[in-house]
Design a protein around this nucleic acid. Structure first.
Lengths: 164, 164
DNA sequence: AATATATGTCAACATGGCTGACGTAAAATC
DNA sequence: GATTTTACGTCAGCCATGTTGACATATATT
């Protein structure tokens, strides 16, 4: 009765299934970012600052260009948040050793503390979801999300993310 | 050699694994929204309009309050995008039958066309990722993402999303 | 020496959040 | 029937974060 449509029209089920997967991602992302957002608000920082701290923390010494590539924003946009992070002592720059035009980015002690604090709530949320879902589900999660990533950047990203 | 850290300190691996899962979600979401963003730009619409069209499309006749609950934004923010969508003929309102204070929201013919067009690219992306990952992986994807959703809203959301 | 690259910076603008205040119609309650 | 609550709309202003375009400076590369 209830599945007349799906019984008669497998394409309908397929479309419905995909729409549900899309919504799931929307809601998951919404709640996944809620924790950090709240903490960062105390510092008057936003999601943009979070992203910078996150990626610099995971790629100490990365250059500004590399960061721009990852974030896919303009250097003017980045500069606004980056310079406040530097001014307020969460990030340091060091002139590149090989190429002195480059500014290599590092978290300060303060920056590392904030990164830890913010990342902790997010890691705890993901850990809970992983625990509840089980190891096989986690592998599936990885596979599907990897498939959503732009072909052009997938390898580079998975390269950094390759674990086991 | 390479796994000295993980061999000696399982917590390190755990933390690293979680950080990678977090990054994966970041990148997947970034690329997942890129397609729609591009199409909507032609209409001078943004992600906010997309969300409204998406949810109204999936819940024809929903009220403004219900939409606000889902989006978790203020009515003033919603009103900005909602009223342009109405003015430009993508969404219609109808006074609630039982409760005449409510405005029930519907896609117009035009709105449905746009919804289809935008959702198509997203569905194709997800379909590709699902195909490549396989059925088990898809189940895992669902489980993990469901676990990321806020406890308070999970049931309501999964209720609407319960498929199969 | 000329050109290209990495970065910074100024200015102006758009989008989409927010708060606060106020208004109106309809429903619910006393 | 009067009062209060609810659903929604709206005005005004602020903030965060994205954009484009133009220009500057130091360093590498050719």
């Amino acid at each position: 009765m209830a599945d007349v449509k799906s019984a008669n029209n497998p394409l309908f089920l397929r479309e419905e299934e995909l729409r549900q997967a899309i919504e799931l991602l929307f809601f998951a992302y919404r709640d996944f970012t809620a924790g950090p957002d709240e903490i960062l608000k105390e510092y008057k920082f936003g999601r943009a600052h979070h992203r910078v701290i996150h990626f610099v923390g995971r790629n100490e010494g990365m250059t500004v260009s590399e960061l721009l590539d990852i974030l896919r924003i303009t250097k003017q946009s980045l500069n606004r948040v980056l310079s406040t992070l530097i001014d307020r002592g969460f990030i340091e720059q060091q002139t590149g050793l090989e190429d002195r035009r480059q500014r290599c980015l590092y978290l300060t002690e303060e920056g590392r503390k904030l990164e830890q604090k913010v990342s902790r709530v997010q890691r705890e949320l993901v850990a809970k979801a992983f625990r509840e879902a089980g190891g096989d589900a986690v592998a599936g999660y990885r596979k599907v999300l990897a498939g959503l990533i732009d072909d052009a950047s997938r390898d580079r990203i998975l390269g950094r993310i390759q674990n086991s």
